[in-house]
């Protein structure tokens, strides 16, 4: 497998008046094409900051991010994002379909192809019938499905997800997790998934990367050797799942001043 994303020596320091706050130090990470990597760590460890640097939305203080071999200085083509705040990431004055279609308008696509992509993406997330609704007419979980459909229709090589299911209830969360797993296999995207939920990280990913608070570099990089076909109850109650969960948990707890519950 070729590497799609290379993060080399990334550091980020915020300067506020006389104080400087170091949120990221010497992060090295390589993600291969088609991989599903989960990024976990205690709150305040800079997961979200790292994701924004990877997306080219935030400049790094030191280090370099390369996406598809090219250094990232602004959001690169072929990048999709899903943020936690579904209510704010969708445009409330546009219908579901318009929200999904907006990002395709500036790509060089025929009208028919654009429509096809939108319809396919809406079907894929189970919102085929809700195209004419407005986001605010949908539940939180369904709004997040729209954000996912928007990413899917864009056919990204890399999909960045920042705690996408932190704000939805447990049942919806399980459904959305399985949806993401299905879409990952179906569209062959590479996914970097930030979460503070260790179970979710293990359940979804092929690799869990632990960032520590106040420590330099990546604290641990744990391969997840579970079956490719996972399922909420069976997988989560398997012995191997328990072992992996404990390993990740120990790594997260090792970080000083942990705020993880």
């Amino acid at each position: 497998m070729t590497s799609l994303l290379e993060i080399a020596g990334i550091g980020k320091t915020y300067r506020a008046r006389e104080r400087t706050v170091e949120v990221l130090t010497a992060i090295d990470l390589t993600v291969s094409e088609g991989e599903f990597v989960a990024l976990v760590g205690p709150s305040g460890c800079g997961k979200t900051t790292l994701l924004k640097i990877v997306a080219g939305l935030l400049p790094a203080t030191v280090g370099q991010v390369r996406f598809g071999g090219r250094p990232v200085t602004e959001p690169p083509p072929g990048l999709g994002v899903v943020f936690q705040e579904y209510g704010r990431s969708l445009y409330a004055w546009k219908t579901v379909r318009q929200n999904v279609e907006l990002q395709l308008r500036h790509l060089d696509l025929s009208r028919a192809r654009r429509r096809e992509l939108v319809a396919d993406a809406l079907d894929a997330v189970g919102l085929g019938a809700a195209g004419d609704a407005y986001p605010w007419q949908l539940s939180g979980g369904m709004q997040q499905r729209v954000a996912i459909a928007r990413a899917v229709a864009y056919r990204p090589r890399l999909l960045l997800m920042d705690e996408p299911f932190s704000a939805v209830d447990a049942q919806t969360r399980a459904d959305l997790e399985d949806l993401v797993a299905t879409l990952w296999k179906r569209y062959g995207m590479t996914i970097v998934f930030v979460t503070h939920d260790i179970d979710e990280a293990v359940y979804l990913s092929q690799r869990v990367v632990v960032l520590g608070a106040g420590v330099s570099g990546v604290q641990a990089d744990i391969p997840v050797d579970l079956d490719a076909d996972r399922e909420q109850i069976g997988t989560r109650s398997s012995a191997r799942f328990g072992e992996l969960r404990t390993r990740v948990w120990t790594q997260v707890r090792r970080t000083p001043e942990s705020e993880m519950v």
Binding site: L57, P77, Q103
Partner: peptide, 23 residues
């Protein structure tokens, strides 16, 4: 958040201005 989405999906400058105005 909306602006960052627009930037990440590389929406043209004009579209982004219009989104801000509409918001």
């Amino acid at each position: 958040v909306g602006l960052q989405c627009a930037a990440a999906y590389r929406l043209p400058r004009r579209t982004r201005h219009l989104l801000v105005l509409r918001g």
